[in-house]
Amino acid sequence: MIELVDISKIYKNGEQETVALKDVSLTIEDGEFVAIMGTSGSGKSTLLHILGCMDKPTKGTYLLMGEDITHFKSRQLSKIRKSKITFVFQNFALMEKYTAYENIELPLLHRGISTRQRKKIILDAVRQLDIESQLYKLPKEMSGGQQQRVALARALVSGADIILADEPTGALDHATSMELMSILKEYNQKGKTVIIVTHDKEVAEFADKVIRIEDGALE
């Protein structure tokens, strides 16, 4: 369960202050599928980054599975990003010089998992996503849809129960977008918590709950 209590994020640029989030409080239950919607600049990404432990709030409390992680050090936060929370990005965020296999392997490294065990986990994931044939290709040799599946596989192998996605369909055509969303829905039905940021109403329809944000505040 995720609980944000009175979270604010203020960016300071010299004299100028930008309030990106204003006293946001929300609760997301395990296994929920949530869509965050709002106009550009309304603070959706900021909220998602805080949810994903990539950024810290200026004010407020963040409880993750009952634990107050507001004041966690950066190293503790990276541990959370390794195994509890994972991401799918709009532009896939694949390492260009590495094969699909190596990209998917990333969250499994340095966790005391043997090479053989890692291989098994990766093969399981790519089979589910139907990208076995892409395993030893570089990202640039794949289509957008395939790249996003690789990114999904990477999110899947980490074993994290929370998947955060910032406009995951933003770079995909309509048909591919729908495919991706059905996959995410499938994961959600298997018990994963999915939180996505989107502009697209059709995409948001996959969610159980829609959170609307405007000027950094929930509506």
Binding site: R75, S78, K79, I80, M95, K97
Partner: peptide
């Protein structure tokens, strides 16, 4: 970009 990705997926700066 690679460094950003590694950090996002849980590699620490120390690592």
């Amino acid at each position: 970009k690679e460094y950003g990705i590694r950090l996002a997926f849980g590699e620490s700066k120390e690592r």
